[in-house]
Design a binder for these strands. Structure first.
Lengths: 195, 195
DNA sequence: TTCTTTACAGTGCAGTCGTATTGCCAAACG
DNA sequence: CGTTTGGCAATACGACTGCACTGTAAAGAA
């Protein structure tokens, strides 16, 4: 066997360049050439690691999802009460700093992307399902300890919570209001869920 | 003066074709030629009514916003209690039928579009601001009549409500769950806001 | 009537797109 | 040592893009 290269690292390098292009100029500006330029590699190399553009897109989506997942996992401190735990998770999805703003921007673009390509959205769907399930569990846990009044359906409450951060993120991205306002809205909502 | 044509009607005709293309195949499939074909007119005509593609896009965005606004206005019955009024409004933004699904799809695409072109998002921002203000007013009104416990900040509650339908719409578009589930989540949230 | 102005249709152009193809180079194996 | 083979660069190609330009038909103004 000839030269040995870390295949996965190269793909990630390219995918991250794609993310930067998409965040700065939109998904429609993502072309093989632009990505190659942003990654400071040749077009040929991009083609070597991704046989088709769609393959590159899909991989980049997975990288973004992994980023978000890792951030959420990193925000967790065990033994936190359910409410704080959920909050710690959701805050990681809000564009509160430059990094998260970049990712949220790309995530939004991918949402629009998968809305027209249903088969490409499987990963996204899995993510929200997991998030919803986790939140549901935490709501139930909080009720067991008697912290919350057991009024509304926990699954629906979790659904609303997951949708809420999504909507807040989008509004912040669109410049409708500041990230701080979004955070405040999230907090008041959390208060009502974990009353 | 020569031939007299309803200029605005023609522009709307073209913009609606654009919306159909965007909903079916995504914003990136929106080209002058595709729109012309969908509208069953010539490329030359599209160019006659829109000097640039960006001008066409902006106009189409306005049409979609008008659609949504008209729907919301149409859903209103006066003398409704605040909660039902707000619900009637927000329901119009959920993709519960084919028409609203189409518009929501395009709206999502435009959100992603404006996230990278801030100057094009002014209209969108105005829309959510108006919606937030209206909801805020209704929350305050409901409290005056004593229907609600006056706990959380009404502005933040309105912000959350507006963000919530946005997030729910997106999740429904992505096939993460059904429109009925989204509606149920909205209702439980409305119950807590207008307790 | 003649003239002017609008409302298109058609074509051409320079640039970009994704992809296929070709070829060179260096490293590992026999 | 050669030979093979993966890693990459470069180029070419047909399709498509937004836009500019030209031509033509028709409807009012003079």
């Amino acid at each position: 066997m000839p030269k040995k290269v870390d295949n996965h690292a190269r793909r990630k390098l390219i995918a991250e360049a794609l993310v930067r292009v998409a965040a700065k100029r939109g998904l429609e500006a993502v072309s093989l050439r632009h990505v190659a330029e942003e990654a400071d590699v040749s077009l040929g190399m991009v083609q070597h690691y991704f046989r088709t553009k769609d393959e590159m897109m899909t991989f980049a989506m997975d990288v973004v999802r992994d980023n978000a997942g890792a951030r959420m996992a990193g925000g967790i401190e065990p033994n936190l009460p359910p409410k704080d735990l959920v909050r710690a998770l959701l805050v990681q999805l809000l564009p509160l700093d430059e990094d998260r703003l970049l990712d949220a921007n790309v995530a939004l673009a991918f949402f629009a992307y998968t809305a027209v390509r249903p088969q490409a959205g499987a990963g996204l769907r899995e993510n929200t399902t997991q998030l919803r399930d986790f939140i549901t569990g935490q709501i139930l846990a909080s009720r067991e300890t008697g912290d919350a009044s057991p009024r509304p359906d926990p699954v629906l409450a979790a659904t609303a919570l997951a949708a809420l951060i999504e909507g807040l993120s989008i509004h912040v991205l669109g410049g409708h209001y500041s990230a701080e306002e979004a955070l405040a809205a999230l907090d008041t909502h959390l208060d009502t869920v974990f009353s």
